[in-house]
């Protein structure tokens, strides 16, 4: 026998003890190779995202106003103390909640509805799908402008229709109404965001095995029961992750508000994200803008931590 089981005592093979080979040279190449492919991406991110982030965090404790170049220097917590008495900041904080959860809730409900409608075979499905998903491809600034125009009674029928339905007492531009202005960007955001939810949830729906529904039908489940007992539970993981990520994304998303209302009238539709932008862009007050940004970052971290905590609790309770 030219081989011997390694467990059965001394080995008789080639009769030579193999020389201690060094794999160092090849090993080093193997170890270094992935970093070689990663390095351009990592370097770029370090320079254009991480470094500015760190620098930005330090701005929050300095006076940096481009319009006031002689008043520079470290100011400690001055900006944060100023925040407390900043009426616009607190208004923007409130608006951020309305904006984020208003948009998110509507996007999700309509997106889920659309996904369910599109998830069955019917005549003309491909065409309808392409049409209803089109808003997603429209550049965000254009979505914003488009909807800003649509709320203008001079050139759009929508305010007139709303008045005819009795929703508005006369056809006027709700973007100019401090009470209602925030609704404008929310509508535009919902219009723009439904396709995203629809597609993500459709991918989730398609991963649910068809035979589960067939078994449920044979067991006598109604459509509603199929939805609540099969669809929702199996879709829950993808719903959870999508909602989490979208919340953060929408909270950070300032374009629509900047384009449609610029935070106005009189800051009534300002969110934290748009407030950061206008403080940096219009007032060129980078220090204060960074302080506001620090608060937003903290809020998002707390939000994520809370959600992860809740998830852990849920998992513990369900015994997994």
């Amino acid at each position: 026998m030219s081989s011997s089981a390694s467990t059965s005592g001394p080995v008789i093979s080639s009769g030579l003890t193999p020389p201690p080979t060094t794999h160092r040279k090849r090993s080093f190449k193997r170890l270094a190779e992935p970093y070689f492919y990663l390095s351009p991406a990592l370097m770029l991110l370090a320079l254009v995202m991480i470094l500015p982030l760190v620098v930005g965090l330090s701005y929050a404790y300095q006076n940096i106003e481009l319009l006031n170049p002689f008043d520079r220097g470290w100011v400690g917590f001055k900006h944060f103390i100023a925040l407390e008495s900043d009426r616009v900041f607190w208004l923007a904080l409130k608006n951020t909640f309305v904006w984020t959860f208003g948009s998110l809730g509507l996007q999700f409900i309509f997106g889920l509805g659309l996904a369910l409608l599109l998830n069955q075979a019917f005549y003309g499905r491909k065409l309808i799908q392409a049409l209803v998903l089109l808003p997603w491809a429209v550049p965000t600034f254009l979505s914003g402008l488009n909807w800003a125009w649509l709320f203008n009674p001079v050139i759009s029928p929508i305010p007139h229709w709303l008045a005819a339905l009795g929703i508005l007492n006369e056809p006027y531009n709700i973007l100019a109404d401090p009470e209602l202005a925030i609704i404008g960007p929310i509508v535009a955001n919902v219009w723009f965001g439904i396709p995203f939810f629809a597609i993500t949830l459709m991918a989730g729906l398609q991963s649910i095995p068809k035979d589960l529904y067939e078994a449920a039908v044979i067991d006598g489940a109604t459509l509603w029961q199929q939805f609540t007992r099969i669809t929702l539970p199996l879709l829950a993981p993808i719903i959870a992750i999508t909602l989490l990520l979208r919340t953060v994304w929408i909270a950070n998303f300032a374009d629509l508000i900047v384009v449609m209302t610029n935070g106005g009238p009189a800051n009534s539709s300002q969110t934290i994200a748009s407030y950061i932008f206008s403080t940096a862009y219009k007032k060129l007050d980078f220090g204060y803008a960074s302080a506001v940004a620090t608060v937003l970052l903290l809020l998002l971290i707390i939000y994520a931590a809370l959600l992860f905590g809740m998830r852990k609790k849920l998992l513990e309770n369900s015994g997994n």
Partner: peptide, 8 residues
Amino acid sequence: SGIDLTIN
């Protein structure tokens, strides 16, 4: 773990 084998 420590395979010894000769294949002719």
